[in-house]
């Protein structure tokens, strides 16, 4: 595959190396002159210095024959415009972009960017997961606004330990989707008994997640 990447800070740099190792042909466009020189020393002729939102630069990068285009620059607006040029001017069949502002995700999707990687959301989730105690994790950013997919770990002293699922009263818009026990995942059923250290995966609404959390972890 021929892949053009715009932006060669940490994400673009590592992506370029991974894709080259995997045997792909890669060109990376980077605006910063100093960075370009350093990259040139290591990666050689795959680096082009220039503005990734300039049609002429993208043309010289061979974007017209690219199979995949990746916006990996630091600013969302750079990635959006670069991807839109790739898609509409050069007819690149597959465009991908990272985004920093979590709330820009729906826009990129509406505009037909094929893969949108919500960098901030991924990092925040990973950090959240690393906090000791692991109270409530957001598993993904669902398409529906205000809908949340969360995971709650049941502490030993929780009031729901030993209760059957039909005895646990949930908020109106919250639904348990999966209960992960030591022996594996269980689909919810009325008879399923909650135990300490179970991971409960639930669908909930933004306004209800705190209540759900209180019910599942409260003493």
């Amino acid at each position: 595959m021929y892949i053009v990447i715009v932006g060669c800070s940490s994400v673009g740099y590592h992506l370029t190396k991974v894709l080259l190792t995997a045997g792909h042909e890669v060109t990376v466009v980077e605006k910063n002159q100093t960075r370009c020189q350093l990259l040139w020393d290591e990666l050689g002729s795959v680096v082009i210095e220039g503005d990734g939102t300039d049609e002429r630069i993208l043309k010289s990068a061979g974007t017209a024959r690219a199979d995949v285009f990746v916006g990996a620059a630091d600013l969302d607006e750079t990635n959006l415009v670069a991807c839109q040029i790739a898609k509409h001017v050069f007819q690149v069949p597959h465009t991908m972009s990272i985004i920093k502002d979590t709330k820009n995700e729906p826009l990129f999707e509406v505009l037909g960017i094929d893969v949108v990687v919500n960098a901030t959301h991924l990092m925040v989730t990973a950090l959240e997961e690393g906090v000791p105690g692991r109270p409530l994790l957001h598993l993904m950013n669902p398409r529906v606004p205000d809908l949340e997919l969360v995971s709650v770990s049941i502490p030993a002293d929780s009031g729901v330990v030993g209760k059957r699922l039909d005895e646990v009263e949930l908020p109106p818009h919250s639904f348990i989707s999966l209960v992960v026990k030591k022996d594996g995942a269980n689909l919810p059923s009325n008879e399923l008994v909650l135990e300490s250290e179970d991971e409960v995966v639930a669908v909930t609404m933004t306004g209800e997640e705190h209540t759900l959390y209180e019910i599942l972890t409260g003493v």
């Binding site: 939102t53 600013l75 969302d76 607006e77 750079t78 959006l80 820009n104 826009l107 509406v110 505009l111």
Partner: peptide, 12 residues
Amino acid sequence: LQNALVAQVAKH
């Protein structure tokens, strides 16, 4: 570039 992004947010 910011104009292009924010205008498309407003429109779409």
